Amino acid sequence: MDPKNRVSIHPDFRPAPGEKVFLLSAETYEMPVLRVLNTAEYDRRVAIVRNSDKSEKDKTRILGKFASLCHEASINDQGKLLINRDLVDEIAIEPEGTIWLVGRQSYFEIWSEKNYVSLRKIEKGQDDDDLGILD
């Protein structure tokens, strides 16, 4: 991360030029993480709520909360994503510190170095590879 809170995004993680992304502050294993959703992933999550059997009141509340947690952003032509200072603080990234981008199929995550190291230890310790894809 540079001093202006910009992160260089690997080309494989970038959406189509001009497409916006949504920054969702979340937690994984009780550690803060920033999820970067493209428009399709954001819309997929909205559709899950809209197509649920919840009441209209609950749908409105859930969608409102989701929208309020997502910060609209974009990745510029140089592949840089500007992250709001409040979000940087929330996910415990050190100014000019090392960050990790972690692909999660339909979105990617931005982790502080300290929390990424902890994430790797937790995920390595899990014995859930009965399909043999992690060998």
Rank of each mutant, 00 (worst) to 15 (best):
L23H: 04
D129P: 03
G97K: 01
I133W: 06
S112G: 06
A40E: 07
Y42S: 08
V21N: 05
H71W: 05
E72L: 13
E94G: 04
Q126R: 12
D58W: 07
I48R: 13
N115C: 00
D89Y: 04
G125L: 06
L82A: 14
T60R: 15
C70M: 06
Y116S: 01
G97H: 01
A67P: 01
Y29C: 04
F13S: 09
K65G: 14
D89S: 13
V36G: 08
D129E: 08
A67H: 11
K4C: 03
S68C: 09
K65F: 14
L24K: 07
F22I: 04
I62H: 04
W100Y: 05
R85F: 01
E72H: 10
D128F: 10
L34K: 00
H71L: 14
T60L: 15
P32Y: 05
L101K: 04
F13L: 15
L87D: 06
S8F: 12
F66Y: 15
G125Q: 05
E72A: 15
F66N: 10
Y107S: 11
R14G: 10
H10W: 02
I133P: 00
A40V: 06
P15M: 08
A47V: 01
K20I: 07
R44Q: 11
F13H: 06
R120S: 13
A16N: 07
S8P: 04
E123Y: 02
W100G: 00
T98K: 09
V49P: 03
E19G: 06
R14C: 06
L131D: 14
L69W: 02
K80F: 13
M31K: 03
K57V: 15
D130A: 13
R50A: 14
L24T: 02
R50G: 10
D77V: 14
N51C: 07
R6S: 02
D130I: 15
L87I: 13
G64I: 09
P3Y: 08
E96H: 01
N115T: 01
L134D: 15
L119P: 00
D130E: 14
G125I: 11
L134Q: 14
Y116V: 01
R44M: 09
A40N: 09
V117H: 01
F108K: 04
L101I: 03
L82T: 11
D86M: 11
I75S: 03
T98H: 03
A73K: 06
T98F: 03
D86L: 12
G103Y: 09
G103D: 06
R14K: 05
F66S: 10
S106C: 05
V49G: 08
F66K: 07
Y42M: 15
I91T: 02
P3H: 07
P95T: 09
I91G: 00
C70Y: 01
V102A: 11
L34I: 01
Y107G: 05
M31I: 02
E109N: 08
I83C: 07
I62C: 08
G103N: 12
K54H: 13
D2I: 07
D129V: 03
L87C: 11
L24N: 13
A73Y: 03
V21W: 02
D127H: 12
